Amino acid sequence: MKALIRADASVDIGMGHRVRCQALAQALVELGWTCCFVVDRRYQAFAAANDYFIDSEAECLALASNADLMILDHYGYLADDITALFQAQPNLLVLDDMNDRGDFSAKWVLNPINQTYSANVEHALIGSQYALLRPEFLARSTQFNHASNQLLITLGGTDPLALTLPILQALNARGFLMTDIQVLLGSSAKNADAVKRFCQDHAIALEQGLSDVTPLMGRAKMAISAAGSTLYELACLGVPTIFAQVADNQTRSLQQHVPLGWCDSMRFDTLSENERRAQTEALVKTVVAKWQDDRWLRTARDTALSLVDGRGAARVANCVTSS
């Protein structure tokens, strides 16, 4: 059985699409599938050598008709494009976040937040139980020590708005203990050299490009994070978090998770550079207040742990295989 996955990654797109699709691909492989990514040639620097590289979406349609399953995680596809892909490959799984592309046809749609889709979708896999996490998250937070005074800062695989350095500078200006900070940079993070110099000058622990981030997340008392797929990773490991929203597609997940009480958020992607500086100060002020609120931290951790169990990829793979 052959599955094709249409997803791209880049500094501007981020790594989230690729990462969550890799988690699903691994679960499918364990059930006997062969999986291959279909990637726009412009983004081959963020792809693997054995990916299919295409120059137009028409090539993807041709490839889809010769597969047993097509997985689509691509915001460039609107409703008509998705329906055309479904006509080429009726075993179509669409990964979605915003539900803002109109009614489309698909065999399955996967959305880890609660959304309602039309009857043109045969099976809706909805809710955080379907969040696609890598297998290492199955270890769960009970195996980690959250008692340490460690603030994890992770702004995604690429840190598209280069927020890590100004957040560190604002924390330092407020007198936050620099040795209590752990920075995690993606392998393609913007402004990485400047972040590394600042961390070296202030004795801040830093890791970049880790394949397994669970030990760092598992030690964190609290986190500052971008709100893509990392939201579900941090929830799974029970880490109270202040999210910096860096993309529009993160809006609805934050709208559903912030009211639950385990996290807070501030939006950056719609702001000018000057406005981002003020927003950074506001974010750090919130972090410092929450850091000292032991009651909130305990409640937030328990709530987060109840939301995501790390088995979403296996659930989706089983649904697809058994249908």
Rank of each mutant, 00 (worst) to 15 (best):
D73S: 09
N66L: 13
A67Y: 06
Y75V: 01
F53L: 15
A48M: 01
A49Y: 03
I54Y: 11
L78D: 13
D73C: 07
F53V: 07
D68N: 15
I71E: 11
A64E: 01
M70D: 10
L72E: 06
D55I: 04
L61E: 11
D55E: 12
F53P: 01
Y52D: 11
S56G: 02
A48S: 10
L69P: 03
S56Q: 01
L69K: 05
I54G: 06
N66S: 15
L61M: 12
A64M: 12
S56K: 01
H74N: 13
L63F: 11
L78A: 14
C60P: 03
D55A: 13
D55W: 03
S65R: 10
A47T: 03
A47Q: 08
A79M: 03
L72P: 07
I54S: 09
Y52A: 10
D51G: 02
M70T: 12
E59Y: 02
E57V: 13
L78R: 12
N50L: 00
A62Y: 05
D68T: 02
N50I: 14
A79K: 06
A48K: 03
I71F: 11
N66T: 15
A62G: 06
L72V: 12
S56H: 04
L78E: 12
G76C: 13
L69T: 00
A58Q: 11
A62R: 14
A47K: 09
L78H: 11
L69S: 04
A79T: 05
S65T: 15
F53E: 02
C60V: 11
L78V: 14
L78T: 04
I71V: 15
D73T: 06
S65L: 06
G76A: 13
L72K: 03
A64R: 01
L78I: 09
G76P: 05
H74S: 00
H74V: 01
Y52L: 13
M70N: 09
A47R: 02
A48L: 06
E57G: 03
A58T: 04
N66K: 14
A67K: 08
Y75I: 00
A48G: 07
A67W: 02
S56M: 01
G76W: 09
A47N: 10
M70Y: 08
D68C: 05
S56L: 00
Y77M: 13
A79C: 00
Y75T: 00
A67S: 15
Y75D: 05
D73Y: 14
I71Y: 15
L63K: 11
L61Y: 03
S56Y: 02
F53D: 07
M70Q: 08
D51H: 05
M70V: 01
A49P: 00
C60I: 10
D51Y: 10
G76T: 12
Y52S: 03
L61H: 01
D51S: 08
L78Q: 14
D51M: 11
N50Y: 15
I71N: 12
A67T: 05
D51A: 14
E57A: 06
L69R: 02
A58N: 08
D68H: 10
L78F: 13
D51F: 04
Y77Q: 07
A48Y: 12
E57R: 04
M70E: 10
D73Q: 11
A47P: 04
A47L: 05
A64L: 15
A67H: 08
E59C: 06
L61F: 07
G76H: 13
L69E: 01
D68A: 11
A79G: 04
L61T: 04
S56N: 05
D51C: 07
